[in-house]
């Protein structure tokens, strides 16, 4: 008879490339589908979220300045690391998400492929979203897409890992940095992604992950003056309103996806350059052309 007691882990937050516990000292217990205690997670606070935004802002300029080629490789490295953790990730997902290990495995694999697909956009989206403009005059005029800055991500409960990665990747690949509030119902996917980032050359602060409860965190993210945009999924009309209302204070770009079910698995839907387009601003540059 096996009497060994399993080592239960308390998953921590991921902020500025480190794994701090929540400053609030709070934790939440996570049960598996049978009701057995699976793990504890940090019950992230408003202050954790603000710390994460500060870490993100610090990392933004340098991340945007990296070559697109390099950003693409780092996103691809994330896919490599996630693939290596695919079994663990599938087990963690299956423990709390109905549908079994096979479903979970498919979600993880699609999440890896999503990262690969998005990694490939790094040095191409500007060629799709930008262009030269034929103005009537002796000017050379062109438009390029540029990162908006710090993007707040609100992950859905449905497909908690795939949803989270699908919402983060278009922001990261275009030189934005992210602060993500993970799925409140299935936070282990969020916590695991932190471990993926920490081992895949993602510079400190480029992606920050908070686990906790939406009602506490959503309004803070929406109101935060140093967050430039929000990418959310799986939100109720009330939550959407909270996000859009808070966003008005500093004219944030807000995109609340209505993506559901099998759409998360659809590359045409989730891995198109138009998802990147939401987190870039077009910059148009004029210069006289004459001798």
């Amino acid at each position: 008879m096996n009497t060994r007691l399993p080592v239960l882990k308390t998953w921590k937050l991921f902020i500025g490339g480190a794994f701090p516990r929540t400053e609030s000292g709070r934790t939440l217990a996570i049960d598996d589908l049978k009701g057995n205690l699976l793990a504890h997670i940090c019950h992230g606070s408003k202050k954790d979220l603000r710390n994460a935004v500060a870490a993100a802002r610090k990392a933004q300029g340098a991340w945007q300045k990296r070559s697109a080629y390099n950003r693409g490789q780092i996103l691809y490295r994330m896919a490599e690391m996630l693939e290596g953790k695919a079994d663990e990730a599938a087990q963690l997902l299956a423990a709390t998400v109905p549908g079994g290990v096979r479903r979970a495995r498919r979600e993880v694999e699609t999440a890896c492929d999503r990262l690969v697909s998005m990694a490939g956009w790094a040095d191409k989206y500007a060629q799709i979203l930008g262009n030269q403009n034929p103005v009537a005059g002796a000017f050379y005029n062109f438009t390029v897409p540029e990162a908006v800055g710090v993007v707040g991500v609100v992950a859905p409960n449905e497909e908690p890992l795939l949803g989270l990665i699908s919402l983060i990747a278009p922001a990261l690949v275009s030189g934005n940095v992210g602060v993500a509030i993970g799925s409140p119902q299935h936070p282990l996917a969020t916590a695991l992604l932190g471990e993926v980032c920490a081992t895949s050359d993602v510079p400190a602060g480029v992606l920050n992950l908070i686990t906790g409860l939406r009602p506490e965190l959503l309004g803070v993210l929406a109101d935060h003056r140093d967050v430039d945009a929000i990418h959310a999924g799986g939100c109720s009309p009330k939550e959407t309103r909270t996000l859009e209302l808070g966003a008005a204070g500093n004219v944030k770009r807000v995109v609340v996806r209505k993506t559901k079910g099998s759409d998360w698995y659809d590359d045409r839907h989730c891995a198109s350059p138009y998802w990147i387009d939401s987190f870039v601003d077009s910059k148009t540059i004029w210069h006289p052309s004459s001798t």
Binding site: P134, V135, A136, G137, N141, T284, W286, P288
Partner: peptide, 15 residues
């Protein structure tokens, strides 16, 4: 959103 190098206040429907 708009940068004018060595010019200013130029507008065009295509820009």
């Amino acid at each position: 959103g708009v940068i004018w190098c060595n010019t200013y206040n130029r507008f065009d429907a295509a820009s």
